[in-house]
Amino acid sequence: MDQNKVKDLIDEALALNESLYLVDLDISTNNKIQITVDGDNGVPLSECIRISRNVENSLDREEEDFSLEVSTPDISHPLKLKRQYIKNINRILKVKTAEQEFEGTLIAANDVDIVLQWKAREPKPIGKGKVTVEKTVTLNFKDIKEAKVKIVF
């Protein structure tokens, strides 16, 4: 199966809805095509069906047999694209870098980095007891090893 041909078909389908974007495309050796798409405002089932039909109708099963799956990213999987970070502003993220882990609310994201914010209890500068302080960290995308959205019930 030609990955470039499949990618072109996906891009053609995504061009009809600017809020959607390709997260991942995987074609296994036995021609199982797995397409993962996301959207700035989520992805309705009807869009997954439309993308699937666009790809399926343009490929010839007589020429090469295949299976096709179009889905949205699993919440348990790490974020892959900068656009996914922007979509998840104001959500709690768990972010791992080579040196440490952070957990906080994503308050900003751009093409270069993200900003996390959280509250922490620290000893008072003078006297006994603790005080709650707001912490903020800016992390460059190249330093992020993994980032996942934390599910809060």
Rank of each mutant, 00 (worst) to 15 (best):
D113A: 14
T138W: 03
I151P: 06
P123I: 05
K130Q: 15
W118R: 04
K145D: 04
V149E: 13
K119S: 04
V131Y: 01
I151H: 05
I151K: 05
A120I: 07
Q117P: 03
A147T: 13
V149I: 15
P125C: 02
T136E: 14
F153T: 14
E122M: 11
D143T: 05
V133G: 00
I144H: 04
V133Y: 00
I151C: 09
P125T: 05
D111T: 11
V112I: 03
D113L: 11
K148S: 15
V149L: 14
Q117K: 13
K128M: 00
A120Q: 13
Q117R: 09
I126E: 08
E122Y: 11
Q117C: 04
D113I: 06
K142C: 06
G129H: 00
V115A: 09
I151R: 06
E146H: 06
T136N: 11
P123H: 11
A120M: 03
K130C: 09
V133I: 07
K142P: 04
Q117V: 11
D113W: 08
D113N: 14
L116H: 12
I114P: 10
N110H: 05
D143V: 04
A120D: 07
V152Q: 15
I126G: 03
E122Q: 15
V112D: 06
K150L: 15
K130W: 12
V137R: 13
V137I: 15
D111Q: 11
K128N: 05
T132S: 09
V152R: 13
V152N: 14
N110F: 05
T138N: 07
V115G: 04
I144Q: 03
I126T: 11
K130D: 12
K150C: 13
E122N: 13
V149R: 11
N110Y: 01
K124A: 08
T136W: 08
T132V: 11
K142F: 11
N110K: 02
N140E: 07
V152G: 08
F153L: 15
I114C: 06
D143F: 02
Q117H: 10
E146Y: 05
K124F: 07
A120F: 01
K124P: 02
V112F: 04
K124T: 05
V115M: 07
V131N: 01
K135A: 08
E134C: 01
V137D: 12
K128E: 06
K119G: 00
I144K: 01
I126P: 01
K135Q: 14
V115H: 09
N110A: 03
I144L: 03
V133D: 00
K128C: 02
V112T: 07
I151W: 10
A120H: 04
V152F: 10
K148E: 15
V112G: 01
A147S: 15
V137L: 13
P125V: 07
V149A: 12
W118I: 06
A120C: 02
V112A: 04
T138G: 01
E134N: 14
K130F: 14
P125D: 10
V149Y: 12
I114N: 08
A147W: 11
T138D: 03
A120V: 08
I126K: 14
V149T: 14
F153W: 15
F141R: 00
W118Q: 06
V152W: 05
K124Q: 09
V131H: 02
